[in-house]
Amino acid sequence: MIRVMSDEKGQAFTLEGITAALLILIVTYTLFESSVVVSPIWSEYGDIQLKQLGYDVLRSLDVHRTNMNLSACPDTQNITRNSLQYMLIQLNTSNPQPNQEFLNALDMMLDPSIKKRLEVYWVNQSNNNTIEHLVLINNTPIPDAVGVSRIIVLYPCDVTSSSPFYGSFTNDTALAVEVRMILWHV
């Protein structure tokens, strides 16, 4: 009787030691992994860096035509193929895809660990000013992703009848196209 009892007492003490150790470990682990304490700040840091980089990329790829000759359009020959303008102008309604030269430039400016989604939004002026959009690079973002955007102005002579923007112009107006890029780390 006594022997058995002493055995069980011993087990009880070890058990409590383990329980106590586990308790502290679990609490500390949960704290570090929890969203309350550290993680929102870290993800926000990543956000600040990534968001700024995204705006920088869009600004670098936006090449205005300063001495544009509106009568000599479409002007694709004088627009560099790694610019946002060329990428938008070359889009084709049947299969809207960014051109390879643009994608190369984008890939080079963003680290390989950054994934992206690319969308364009514009106002269809001939259809009661509804907002239309196209997805050009279709990746599904994670909840931590950040979005950046830039408005590019296209002129009627820039687009041909195969362009998705063709029907959205009314005579002699310009079209504001918003390029929206969503970025996240993998």
Partner: peptide, 28 residues
């Protein structure tokens, strides 16, 4: 005699339990 054995075992178990706890505590 049995009581003496009982006490000895107790302190050893106490020691194990306490050292596991202290080990985790110091680690943290």
């Amino acid at each position: 005699k049995e009581k003496r054995i009982d006490e000895g075992r107790l302190s050893l178990d106490m020691l194990i339990g306490l050292s596991i706890f202290l080990f985790a505590f110091i680690f943290i």
